[in-house]
């Protein structure tokens, strides 16, 4: 269970408050969606949860299964089961995708006191998962995200998620810039990981994705906090009327 309580975050370098008392709970096994206007702090929330530098937490808390996320290094949060699919996956020239993923999988295993995955076993697993995401062997050999199309980058994020088998998956606009087929592929990838225990927090602007990944709860975020939560019908309302009415409601 991911529990965010009254989270307040400002930029480290400037006096700019971005999250202004954000509260949100995603029980295990559930899929929650976050929608909200650009600039409302959705990406900031996902970065702060995963431990990116440049932000200062000025109040509140975030825990995963009772463990304080904010006190940990980014790699410890990952090992604790948190995964962020980046809105803008980073290109890393010179580091092979395969090397990267194997290092990641084995680092997490090691920190949990588990045995490392052998090269052969890893290869077998990744090939099967890559295939279902239509990621070809050539893409696995290339440097991380370098020369990947927008859609390939997003599918690569889902592949990483599938390999790392996290407890809590945060997907930041994974559907942005994808055509219908690519989006279906991503949604299938996510659905394949739904096992009744794993939780998802899906940040999106579009109902379209939520047609494929059915959310239990939809939250609306604006100006650094959740202004409304509800069932899947809330996403439809946004799709039809935009955010104006919702924003007016709380104003």
């Amino acid at each position: 269970m991911l529990k965010i309580e009254n989270l307040q975050v400002k930029l480290e370098e400037e006096d700019k408050q971005i999250l202004k008392g954000l509260s949100l709970t995603v029980p295990s096994g559930e899929v929650h969606a976050i929608m909200g206007p650009n600039g409302s702090g959705k990406s900031t929330m996902s970065y702060v949860l995963s431990g990116k530098g440049g932000y200062e937490v000025t109040g509140g808390s975030a825990t995963l299964d009772g463990v304080d996320l904010l006190a940990m290094e980014p790699e410890e949060r990952a090992a604790a089961g948190l995964f962020l699919a980046f809105q803008y996956p980073v290109e890393i020239p010179g580091v092979g995708n395969m090397t990267f993923l194997r290092t990641a999988v084995n680092s997490q295993r090691k920190s949990r006191g588990e045995d490392e995955m052998s090269a052969a076993e890893f290869l077998k697993v990744i090939r099967a998962k890559a295939k279902s995401l239509k990621i070809d062997a050539e893409m696995l050999k290339r440097p991380v995200n370098v020369g990947f199309s927008g859609g390939e980058k997003k599918r690569n994020e889902i592949l990483q998620m599938a390999m790392l088998e996290p407890k809590m998956c945060v997907l930041d606009e994974t559907d942005s810039g994808l055509d219908v087929d690519a989006m279906k592929l991503v949604a299938e990838g996510v659905n394949a990981l739904r096992d009744g225990k794993r939780s998802f927090l899906v940040i999106t602007h579009y109902q379209r994705l939520l047609d494929h990944i059915k959310p239990d709860v939809v939250h609306i975020m604006a100006d650094g906090r959740i202004i409304k939560s509800g069932g899947p019908e809330l996403a439809l309302e946004v799709e039809n009327n935009g955010y104006a009415d919702l924003l007016a409601e709380v104003a």
Partner: peptide
């Protein structure tokens, strides 16, 4: 810094 964070967010310790 972005590349470093990306790697660490996947569970790879800072030094590595």
């Amino acid at each position: 810094a972005d590349a470093l964070f990306y790697l660490m967010s996947r569970g790879i310790p800072r030094a590595q």
